[in-house]
Amino acid sequence: METFPSLAGPFALGTFSAGAGPAFPGLVAGERVLDLSGHAATTRALLERWDEVLPLLHEAAAAAEGEWRPLAGLRVHAPVEPRQILQSGANYRTHVIDLAVAHEPAGGRPAEQVRAEVAAMMDRRAAEDQPYVFIGLPSSVTGPYDDVVIPAWCEKPDWELELAAVIGRPAFRVAQEDALEHVAAYTVANDITARELVFRRDMPEIGTDWLRAKNAPTFTPLGPYLVPAGFVPDPSSLRVTLRLNGEVMQDESTKDMIFDVARLVSYASQTVELRPGDLVLTGSPAGNGLHWGRLLRPGDVMEGTITGLGTQRNRCRDER
């Protein structure tokens, strides 16, 4: 069970259950949880009244009253059920460069040449281009300590640890300079990907197939908690670290992002009306399994940590 000292700020929000009881929204402060079901049925309902709720959460965290429960006795679920998930692709410089080198055909250009060319392309993207954003399915979300189930058809499952921005105020066609005002909180997401299905071999002219590659049940471990944005002064200065069976595979700062959180939220909102509880995933840094030549197997344990947001821990198992 993840403990409080790794969290930024005096409290966070989550979704919990006790035994076979129903899930409820809770305020996490130290090693205890305050049941908030008297105020709302879900954390998403709290986010829908975020400007009103946030001051009350500050007061509740500082008070001794209320129905507090030991955190250790509760099951931790995904902290929110989003209506929409907007995912950013190819958003870390080093990751994109590594992928380009990995996909270079045998006997092709030297790795140094590929790295130099792609680095120059990344600079042009940051200055002149737009983010690449696609849609994920809420049905892929699972809890921060739940198993990741590898489907029988999945041959190359891979990890992608990411910072996720959680929308509070509705956002539609917001300017970049105003975008962070619509972010209520941040959390940890792992965007599991079936690498062999990213590109359609039968229809290469169509391009990527994100439906099958990323949206199987349990392919988006989320949480453990929602950490209010006010406790995360600079989302572009966080460490994203994933360990596989205790070995560090990803370890990068969000400074390596090509497009920051504000730019991603603003860009997505030009097309989509972002609603409370929606997630904007910001892309994954270098160090995926494809880079290491070591993909996920049944029995593997992933531990994903982002500065101040806690740690998720998921074991992989074969659905068979």
Rank of each mutant, 00 (worst) to 15 (best):
V280D: 01
V53A: 02
H39W: 13
E252M: 14
N91R: 10
A268R: 00
V133M: 06
G38V: 12
L180H: 02
L264F: 04
R124H: 13
K214C: 10
A120N: 10
S88F: 06
A64L: 13
G9V: 08
N245E: 00
G168L: 01
A194N: 07
P228R: 00
A60S: 04
D178T: 13
A185C: 03
F219T: 11
T43I: 02
F219I: 08
A111Q: 13
V133Q: 05
V261C: 07
G207H: 09
M1V: 12
A179R: 03
M203D: 15
G308P: 06
L13E: 00
E196I: 05
R115I: 04
D129P: 09
Y225P: 01
V114P: 02
A152D: 14
P224T: 07
V53P: 01
P221V: 10
I306M: 05
A62F: 11
E196S: 14
E48C: 10
L36H: 00
H39P: 10
R275K: 13
T307L: 08
E303I: 07
N91H: 07
A62G: 14
W159H: 06
Y132T: 14
E59L: 11
A8S: 11
V240H: 06
L86G: 10
V248M: 07
T208H: 12
A194Q: 08
R173S: 07
A116R: 11
P105Q: 08
K255Y: 15
A90P: 10
V174F: 09
P55N: 06
A175N: 11
Q130W: 12
